[in-house]
Simulated scan of single mutants.
Amino acid sequence: MLWLLAAVLVLAALMLASLAFGTRDVPWSDVWSALGGADGTLGEAAASKRIPRTVLAVLIGAALGLAGAVMQGVTRNPLADPGILGVNMGASLAVVTAVAYFGLSSPTGYIWTAMAGAALAAVFVYTVGTLGRGGATPLKLALAGAASSAAFASLVTAVVLPRNDIAGGFRLWQIGGVGGASFERTGQVLPFLGAGFVICLLSARSLNSLALGDELAAGIGERVAVARAVAALGAVVLCGAATAVAGPIGFVGLVVPHTCRLLVGVDHRWLLPFAALLGAALLTAADVTGRVVARPAEIDVGIITALIGAPFFIWIVRRQKVRAL
C-alpha cells in the first residue's frame, strides 16, 4: 500500500510538472488557476493547452504499461513488449494501409483498424515463435518479433513514400508522441481503453494461475486457452487503441513490468495496477523531458522511451534467467 501511495503521488507530481514545464515555463499560481478553468493570462492559457496532452500521456502510458505486463504474463516471456513483439508496428501498418488504399478517415475507424492489425501481428509473431524445437521460448519470440517489426516498418515506409499527400503526417505519427492532443481525440479512444483496462485487470487471477504452468493451471480448474485468449484480447485492445491515437511508442511495456516486480512481486493482482500507474508516470516524465531538453523545439516521447528502453532490453537479455517468468 505504501508503494501504491508513492506511485500515485509521483504520478500526480509529474502531471503538475507537465502543466508547468515546456517551451514556456508557467508559474505555479497560473497552473492552479488553469486547473480551475481560467485562461485569461498567457501562463494560464499555456497550462490549459497542456491539460489534454497530459491526460493523453497518462492514459497511453497506463495502457502500454498494463499491456506489457499482461503480455509477459500470457507468454511467460520476460522480453514481451508491444514494440518488441511487433504488435505496435502491426497496428501501424494496418492504419497506414487503410488510409492509403481504402480512404480511411474516421477516428473510430483508425482505432478498429489498429486493433485488427495489432491482433494479426500478435498471432503471426506467436505462430512463428512456436515453430521448431522447444516451442515459444522467450528468445525465439523476441527474434520473431524483432524481425516482424522491422518488416512491418519497411512495409509502412513502402506504402507511405509514394503518397506525398499523407507522408508528412505519418512520418510524425510513426515516431510516437502525444503532441496535438485534444479532449475530442481522447474521448474517441477512451471507451476502447476503458474496455481494455477492465479486461486486463479482471485477468489478474487467471494470469497468476498461468504463471504456475499450463498443466498445473489446468489441474486447479483454470481453462488455460480461454484465460490466455481473454488476457491477450485485453492487451491487444490497449495496444491498438494506444497506437491509433499516439503512434507506435515502444519499450514502455518492457521497462515498467520489470520495475513493478522489484517493488511489489509477481502477484498480478498488485502487479497490473502498479504497471498502469508506473506506465503513466514514465510516459508523462518522458513527455516533460522531451519538451525541456530541446527548447524551443521538442523531442517526441517515442524517442525518449527508446533511449531508456534499449539499454534496459540489453540488460534483461544478458541476465541468466531469461528463459521464462
Rank of each mutant, 00 (worst) to 15 (best):
V74W: 08
M1R: 11
A67F: 00
D165C: 05
L35R: 09
P27F: 11
I303V: 15
Y101H: 15
T243G: 07
S182G: 13
F313G: 08
E215Q: 10
R318P: 01
G83C: 03
A69R: 10
K140Q: 08
R185P: 02
V224P: 02
G177Y: 05
W3V: 14
F192P: 02
L193S: 09
Y110L: 14
I249D: 11
A20R: 14
A91V: 10
L272T: 10
L5K: 04
D214E: 15
S148D: 02
V288C: 03
A229V: 04
A147T: 08
V255F: 06
L131N: 08
G247I: 05
L207A: 12
T157L: 13
R53C: 09
T259V: 14
F312G: 10
E298C: 02
R163I: 05
T54S: 15
T137K: 04
G169H: 07
M89A: 15
G240P: 04
A147H: 01
G180L: 00
L143N: 12
G176V: 11
V178C: 11
S33K: 12
G135M: 05
A100I: 12
L278I: 08
T41Q: 04
L42T: 15
F152V: 10
A47W: 00
P82W: 01
F152Q: 03
A225T: 15
L271D: 02
T127C: 04
G196L: 10
G145S: 07
I51A: 13
S206V: 05
L216Q: 15
V125Q: 04
E222H: 04
P162Q: 01
E184C: 01
V159I: 15
V252Q: 09
M15G: 14
A114I: 09
I303Y: 05
S154T: 13
L14D: 07
V230R: 11
V159A: 10
P296C: 11
F124N: 04
A122F: 10
T113V: 15
